[in-house]
Design a protein around this nucleic acid. Structure first.
Lengths: 334, 334
DNA sequence: CAAATAAAGTAAAACGTTTTACTAATTCAA
DNA sequence: TTGAATTAGTAAAACGTTTTACTTTATTTG
């Protein structure tokens, strides 16, 4: 059963294809199509259930009303929640989102960019990784709107929306110190992205400002793509062998692994051992005791990303880049 | 900066568009293009970075290499994990996934189907809701491959992949009874989908088979789209006012709310109060004490969905529908 | 009342591919 | 040595839209 085309509608209504197209696109008035014809055609479209072929439309107009969203991993709750928010907001403005996960692989990220490019998406929202600067620059050179979020790439000159990771990390450590902690560990990842580096810098600076000597042995950099069992082993080794009274986890999944370790070695969180996790997660509120977290302002990030993208899509002229840095919130739970 | 077209390549190589097309599509041999020409053209394509315009390709061939995935909510970990698996497997076979959330709204689901239809996706993977049977039937009538998963629609005649919810629910209740529980509650939702009904049926049947009288007062049906605070209030009311020694939560997000209630009213899970949650969640393993769950076989569901879809896409002939029911696993944690 | 303007609509090109049906030159078989 | 078969390649139609430039008829204006 072939689906209807604009031609079928034109024939049924006994008008030209052009006329139908004008009506569909709301240009009927402006193109002086009579009220009678408009009504007739609209009725036929309604009854037949005709929907314009978006592919043909895209080919002709050169835009797709699709925005490409490239993230690290859709099954990570930070990204899935933000994806949902972005999707929602974009949808209300008539845009669809295609999203896909890079799994922190440079090759996959490049492939995704190419795929989106050949699908002629109208704009790109990217949570980038190091190593794809050139590809992003090419998109920009071709005149595509690109917004980075969550992680910035210093070498690429485009708009960015993200949380203030440095300050959030600094404040977390400060709060440990205010509680009298002295031996503060950081469990982070080895992926080389700005947002992770800032969290590290905040940790270091806070120690320094409080006259605590930075100790390399208390910083654990977990390899990104490794099995969780290895991660757990490494964290366990840190917790068991080092004298630690507080720990900041730089991502929520590291914190989850860390909590599993604590459970396993039967170490209790309390007055002599404090924990803060970066990026909230349902498990943290529920945990006994509840885990303090740094909450990123998901809603605001999504809202700003969409706002920037739409502004850029509507103004044809070259847009002035913006960096929007939103404070993160330290939630202390007991 | 306009992007290259096949014509640009043809001109540069001094051959016809047809020839370039044959080479791109690996039909060069079969169409007897000489080795020399193939090499020349491939070199030019390589150097110029030309990528075929998928939109034009789709328009001409009528297929898009895109599979549409319609789910309830991408920010729910069950769906985001399954989406990730499906995406992964599809990607390896050269298909892209577009996904979008219905939020359990019939209107949004219908809109999404229309959107995918006008984008000419090659196949549909849908976790459906009641009320879109007709729309799905139309897709089938038009010859589109459609696979339902997680929830079945009895009125629609197409392939389905899902877990055995009835048995899983039955076994959960049986395990409560084996522990000597007598007053077993069920916290479920009011959405009218088969998978939820089966969980309810399993609950009822297990009670019955063990000679325990079914009590309507112990079954709480939470309205789907309501605020979490209301959900918490309702669950609290159940837990405080009824004599209960075990509870089965029919979804993971209900269990999360339920655990919050227990924490708030300071009721401990232990010998005199048992909990099982449907659909695993990171919070459950970490919880003190750990929460027993019914784990759906995500990997197997994703694998079967993709296998069915691909089989259907490759065989042009009408495909015989299959129902694949995979056992769920009851994980007892202490 | 002639010329200009407005109203109502249409023909055809273009977007970038794939594919069918064709041509021209060469090789092969009898 | 002829005509059939093979090799190497191409011209042009088609996919379903949008949009530009055009036509025809009716209305207004000076």
């Amino acid at each position: 059963m072939k689906s209807l085309s604009i031609k079928d509608i034109a024939v049924k209504a006994n008008v030209s294809i052009t006329t139908v197209s004008f009506i569909i696109n709301g240009k009927a008035k402006e193109k002086s199509i009579s009220e009678a014809v408009i009504e007739k055609v609209e009725k036929i479209i309604e009854e037949s259930g005709y929907k314009p072929n978006q592919i043909a439309r895209s080919l002709r107009t050169g835009n797709s009303n699709i925005i490409g969203l490239i993230i690290e991993d859709i099954s990570n709750s930070f990204f899935s929640r933000i994806a949902r928010l972005i999707e929602d907001k974009a949808y209300k403005r008539g845009y669809k989102i295609i999203y896909s996960s890079t799994e922190n692989s440079i090759d996959k990220a490049k492939e995704l960019i190419n795929m989106f490019k050949s699908r002629k998406v109208d704009a790109y929202i990217i949570s980038p990784i190091k190593g794809i600067e050139e590809d992003i620059q090419m998109l920009l050179d071709d005149g595509n709107p690109v917004i980075l979020f969550d992680r910035n790439l210093p070498d690429v000159n485009t708009s960015y929306v993200g949380a203030d990771h440095f300050t959030a990390s600094y404040q977390s450590i400060q709060s440990f110190i205010d509680q009298g902690k002295k031996n503060i560990a950081l469990v982070t990842t080895d992926i080389n992205v700005e947002q992770i580096i800032e969290r590290y810098d905040g940790y270091k600076k806070a120690l320094e400002d409080n006259g605590i000597k930075y100790d390399d042995k208390l910083v654990l950099k977990i390899h990104f793509n490794q099995e969780e069992s290895d991660t757990i082993a490494q964290i366990k080794e840190l917790f068991v062998n080092k004298k630690i009274d507080a720990v900041l986890f730089a991502t929520n999944y590291l914190a989850i692994s860390g909590l599993k370790v604590l459970k396993k070695i039967n170490k209790k969180i309390g007055d002599d051992f404090a924990v803060i996790a970066y990026d909230d997660h349902e498990a943290f509120e529920l945990h006994t005791p509840a885990i303090s977290t740094v909450q990123q302002p998901l809603e605001e990030i999504a809202e700003n990303v969409i706002k920037l993208i739409l502004k850029q899509l509507s103004t044809k002229t070259k847009f002035e880049n913006q960096e929007i840095i939103i404070p993160a919130k330290l939630i202390i739970r007991h």
